[in-house]
Write a protein that binds this DNA or RNA. Structure first.
Lengths: 188, 188
DNA sequence: TAAGTCATGTAAAAAGTTACATGATTCT
DNA sequence: AGAATCATGTAACTTTTTACATGACTTA
């Protein structure tokens, strides 16, 4: 069982467990809230993945009995898990396609009604600008709350901040592109 | 057979066939070369998908016998296919996560060796800058070759240009982020 | 009383990746 | 001689999504 290779989702979960011990339920929330911008998974994928990680010795769990609520399992990362995560984090990614359905729609927008197409991209622009504003609020919060840690790349706070910066740039660029495209379609 | 719903890949193929009639083999190349930046599929996914589209009446094919080479099927989009594509292109996308393994690695980079992590992001910066340069060459070519069409959102050339602009912004932003992160990791 | 939170799972289907299978021609 | 191009498919496997299944407690 030790040799079975870990999926990307497995490493995503290890990355969350390297920061704090969590239940499968909490992990489901963390995946959505903390890394939901660049990875996703529902609980039906997470519970089996945790079982695999446990079988591979990368995580352990402590069962906790509860009253009025179902019992739970608090998962924590093991030393082997920590080592696996550290190794994976510096291994090159194979460059595959970034699947983006909206860009795919833009590729065929010429064949569609230009008024409706303009509306679609105007709406997407709005969505991305809203997200951008959200990320900017988060950034301000991090600067206040984590001031010192943001200069030390050895802290989880720095890493969280780094991914936020990626989100900031991504949303800003995406919103601008949507706006440009919507404008072009409207001028017709 | 008419009611079976079309996958995103199906619409990607329709988008390519709306421009020119192609064989499955050629489509495999077009997916890689033309829309490979924002969507991907290998031939083993494309051939069955074409059969589905044909069953749904969205494409037709003409069999062509060849000597010295295997026979081929030239697929073209039908009126129903054109209508389905036009409808899909203006339908809102549900906002799901953009899977980005490198950002996921950044999220756990704090737990890894910072020298190796810096090398990873420096390398990725280079890769994205190379792609950016490629896209800039393509953009220059389009400006020369397609000058008039780039102002008419009703042409496929405009749509191709629009996706290229997305790629340009994406790569530029991604390269800059990688550079910033690599710099931060190196200062340590 | 209806919706939301906490809590864990399984099952089925769809989508995507990798490997198997064949075979002539052309280029290096 | 070996690799690449043309050309089409199937099989096996992994990953992801959607649905099924249960149930007490809390909030609106």
């Amino acid at each position: 069982m030790r040799g079975s290779k870990v999926s990307t989702l497995g490493y995503a979960l290890l990355g969350l467990l390297a920061r704090e011990a969590l239940t499968g339920y909490e992990l489901t929330g963390r995946v959505r809230e903390r890394i939901g911008f660049f990875w996703g998974a529902g609980h039906s994928q997470i519970y089996p993945e945790l079982a695999k990680l446990e079988g591979a010795g990368l995580v352990t769990y402590e069962p906790v009995a509860q009253e009025g609520k179902p019992d739970k399992k608090i998962y924590s990362i093991t030393d082997a898990g920590q080592a696996a995560l550290a190794g994976w984090a510096v291994t090159p990614v194979e460059p595959g396609p970034t699947r983006d359905e909206l860009t795919l729609k833009a590729y065929s927008a010429w064949a569609a009604d230009s008024v409706k197409a303009a509306e679609l991209f105007r709406g997407e622009e709005r969505r991305h600008r809203e997200r951008l504003a959200e990320y900017e609020r988060l950034q301000a919060w991090m600067h206040e709350e984590w001031a010192e840690a943001l200069w030390d790349p050895g802290t989880p706070e720095f890493a969280t901040y780094a991914t936020l910066r990626r989100g900031l740039g991504y949303e800003r660029e995406y919103a601008e592109w949507c706006g440009w495209l919507a404008g072009s379609l409207e001028q017709r």
